[in-house]
Each structure stands twice: as structure tokens, then as C-alpha cells.
Amino acid sequence: MIDIDRMLAAAKPSEDDEIRRQIMLPWPEAFRIAMRNVTLRLGRAAITATGVILGIAFLVSVWTTNVIQDALEEEKPLAGLQQEAGKTEVEGGVAMMTEGVEEPGERAEGKARQVWLVVMSLLVCGVGITNSMLMSVTERFREIGTMKCLGALDEFIVRLFLIETAVLGFLGALVGAIIGHLIMLVIYMIKAGSSITAKMDWGQMLTYIGIAVVIGCVISLVAAVPPAVRAARMAPAVALSTEV
């Protein structure tokens, strides 16, 4: 019986009026809540991350192939140089082409195809992430409405989803980059011998992996913002009554 009286007593806090008028969600709290959503909805998080992983893995595998083939192409003219001493590198390249390995036209076509593959992989990745983000926001409409009833501002909701997506996007892109890289590396090591690891341009490779991770994060965030903003702007009553 006494507890409610005491509770009310505690309800007249010593804080001054200015503090009382604030509505806040401190970043550490937001981070904690968002991470909880990632770790406790592991299945959903995995699906969202898988979209990123697949897209980025494909992208990095294409880039890894590029780096390895560049290394292999450099190797051939070197071999040619040993046989016909005195030839310049350019001539070596010409010699290689005249050996009928690749026509110049074919090579340009190969490059174009690679660009096409990269663009396609990014598109697939983007659509996949957008789709799973849409789903994960939609299935949480009720939760979003509840949070707004409890006093959350629109930006809190967006903030929670952004943190969540940034984390998923980063982890997914990192894992995807490593997977894509390793797969292509192993394939070429089997095909061309393990010596290629020594010949590869690792600086270039790491740059590509870095770029891929950044792209993964950016795509995730861009895909997540519109549904999150839309959900945050809904009137709580509408969000609460949405049946999924």
C-alpha cells in the first residue's frame, strides 16, 4: 500500500525544470538498444547481413580476379624478357599479344565485362539490403509506435535503425570482402600455383577491400534511411494498429 505513495513522492524529482523538459536518447543508450536488437534478433540480422555479404563478396571476388590477373599478365612478359633480352616491357606486351593469348579488343571487352559485373553486384547487394531493411522495419512498426508512446522523438527511431544498419553493414561487408577474396585466391592458387600470393599487388588488394567495406556500409545506410524515416514519421496510433 505504501509503495505507490512513495512512488509518487519520488515522482516529484529534485531535477530543475529545464532538465525536466528534456527528451533525450543518449548515444551510448541508443547504441546499447540497437546492439541488443542485432544480437537478440540474430536470425533477422543474419538475413540483412547476408544481403551485404553476398553483394560485397561478389564485388571483391571480381576485384581479386583483376589483381591476380594483372599479376599473371606481368609475369608473362617477364618470361618473354628472359628469352629475348633487350625487349622493352611494351614490346613484351605486344609479343605476348602476338602469341595469341588475347586480342586487344578482347581485353577491353574483358574490362567492360568486369565493370558490368561490379555494377551488377552492387545493384544486387543494394536491392537485397533494401528489401531486408524494409522487412525488418515493417515487422517492427508496433515496437516503433510503442516507443513513440513512451516519448521517443522521430529522430530516436531513425537513430536506432541507423546504428543497427551501420553495424550490420560494416560486419557484413567485412565478412563478405574476406569471403570473396579468399574464394578467388584459393581458386587461383589451385589454378596457377601458390606462388601468385607473392606476385600479387597486396596494397592494391587491401585498397579494394577497404573500398568494398565502405561501399557496403554506404549502401546499407542509404537503403535503411527511407523505411526508417517513414516508420518514424507515422502517427503512433497508425504504427500500433499495423498488422504484419
Binding site: 524529482p13 527528451i23 513512451l150 516519448g151 530516436f156
Partner: peptide, 9 residues
Amino acid sequence: TLPMIFAGM
């Protein structure tokens, strides 16, 4: 405690 977080407790 969620509403209390929003209230800045």
C-alpha cells in the same frame, strides 16, 4: 526504464 531514459533520468 525505457521511458526514464527518454526523460533523461
